[in-house]
Amino acid sequence: MNGERSDVLHVRTPEGVSFVFRVASPVIRLAALLVDWAVVLAAWSVIATFVRLLAILSEDITGLVGIMLYFALSQGYRIAAEWRWRGQTLGKRLLHLRVVDEQGRRLTFEQIVMRNLLRFVDALPMAYMVGGAVALLNRRGQRLGDLAAGTLVIWEPAEPMPDFELLRGEKYNSLRGNLPVVARLRQSVAPEAARVAWQALVRRDELEAAARVRLFADLAAYFRARTRVPDELVEGVSDEQFVRNVVDVLYVTRG
């Protein structure tokens, strides 16, 4: 419960590869919790319908089965779901959250049980105030249950495969014919700048027209400043098409 709050957890594997887990914020976790409460209530309303049928046999047995099943459902749903779905409940699935071991290893059953049983304290005095406060103070957003179990909740939005179709324009790329320019661009453009240009192309339709024109003008100016591009290669080419051509030669080799 000390140190600066961090949004990511860096893991370095024995193979020497590093990757990051993005730590879920307490707010998004609260949203998942609400979904799970709704799931339990919905499931219970269905189960209770069937349990009530037992009243044909005995009202008393119906009471016992109802009490035990509700207890098992309310306490066991998260344990069962997180075990079955590798650290996810329905709420977590919906919000792209997952419980992981804090070292990045496989979750054990004990960890799942422990983090869920500790909800008895995290939920105190009401509405997860203890757990929420601890998670806010903790640099990895861990509540008491996570601290005891050695787990944390990460946010893992779906990661689609990169789409190269956006570079497959039918338009002629004037830069391709000039190998020295291509080579200079590849040498001088910083990876971060190339990434920004790529993202600008990916998200062009999300931008307002004026903002889009400004953004591509800035990017084109940046690329032109990095390397001298003969006028004949950019004559009649819009800033956006110029950026598209630059990204094309940076990322894709044709031949």
């Binding site: 990661e159 495969m161 990169p162 971060e192 190339a194 990434r195 790529w198 990322y251």
Partner: peptide, 9 residues
């Protein structure tokens, strides 16, 4: 330092 989608995937 290639583009981020591939790396995240």
């Amino acid at each position: 330092a290639a583009e981020p989608e591939a790396r995240r995937y």
